[in-house]
């Protein structure tokens, strides 16, 4: 890393060292108690509209000079938010950045997990809007903390029960609740449930930051992560009849995109890096 590349007048990764240490202490506790929400004294971060600061604070606290950073928003490296956050950390750390999942040591994400399986040594940092999975039914913070402490989780299945009663199946498709390490119920942030199985026993370290509610939680590598369900309505991921209109993948999470004013639509990979790599390999001469 070249010190000249850091914008003058700012500390490495923007946050002061004391704040980073405070966040790292919260992270260590979070890793020690998988799925448990650790309160921390959050700081303000300059951020694009619509992007919370929790994930950015975690990234700022763990990023090192030898890291290679990837930033995705809904799976894409090229959205305005992803581009500006990548530029922000490049300016304030001088670290390498990448769009390629396998090159990254640190991946800051909002609402997706990359399609390419993560490896040991990689760190995935999730931006979390609402960390409390029990909030939908219990507005009191004191009570939800007590419910976690006592493993009083009967209410979690109420939500799934109501889904089946109303729609005939579990309709919850995003922020689908999971049980971490057989102990804590956790909100995986608004990723599609398609991504839930990727959290289970992942070799990567997964860190979650909620800025507004000032909570940090974590899934250490190789931790059991089970999606809640019923015996007669087992957990299932989304499937599509279509394949990706660009790369032809039948295995990735697809976004529906409108192609013209007549309402014609197609399905394409939400993970832009995955899609591009598949295209590149197909174009290569055999």
């Amino acid at each position: 890393m070249n010190p000249q590349t850091i914008r003058e007048g700012y500390n490495f990764a923007y946050l002061d060292e004391q704040t980073k240490r405070m966040i790292r202490r919260a992270l260590l506790k979070a890793v020690a108690i998988p799925g448990y929400q650790v309160p921390f004294g959050g700081r303000e971060m300059p951020m694009p509209y619509g992007w919370g600061t929790g994930g950015m604070q975690v990234t700022a606290a763990v990023i090192g000079q030898n890291d290679c950073l990837k930033v995705i928003d809904q799976g894409a490296d090229d959205t305005t938010n992803a581009v500006s956050i990548r530029a922000f950390f490049r300016d304030l750390t001088g670290v390498k950045t990448t769009e390629r999942t396998e090159e990254a040591t640190l991946i800051q994400t909002r609402h997706r997990i990359p399609e390419k399986p993560l490896q040991a040594g990689q760190v995935l940092v999730y931006q979390v809007p609402i960390p409390e999975p029990l909030r939908f039914i219990e507005p009191s913070e004191v009570e939800t903390r007590k419910m976690h402490a006592l493993e009083d989780y009967g209410v979690m299945h109420i939500k799934l029960y109501e889904d089946i009663a109303q729609f005939g199946h579990i309709a919850t498709a995003y922020a689908y609740p999971v049980l971490v390490n057989g102990r804590y119920v956790m909100d995986p942030s608004p990723i599609p449930k398609f991504d839930n199985p990727k959290m289970d026993n992942s070799p990567a370290l997964q860190l979650f930051g909620a800025g507004r509610e000032k909570r940090i939680y974590a899934i250490p590598p190789y931790t059991d992560v089970k999606s809640l369900d019923f015996e007669d309505h087992p957990f299932e991921v989304q499937t599509w009849k279509q394949c990706c209109a660009i790369c032809g993948s039948t295995e990735s999470f697809l976004d529906e995109v409108i192609m013209d004013d007549q309402g014609a639509h197609e399905f394409i990979c939400s993970d832009t890096d995955y899609c591009r790599e598949r295209m590149a390999s197909q174009e290569m001469p055999v």
């Binding site: 009083d152 009967g154 029960y161 369900d229 019923f230 015996e231």
Partner: peptide, 14 residues
């Protein structure tokens, strides 16, 4: 009605 049953581990919707 089902909440207590779910809280005590019943996991069969039917």
């Amino acid at each position: 009605i089902g909440e207590r049953l779910m809280a005590t581990g019943q996991r069969h919707y039917g």
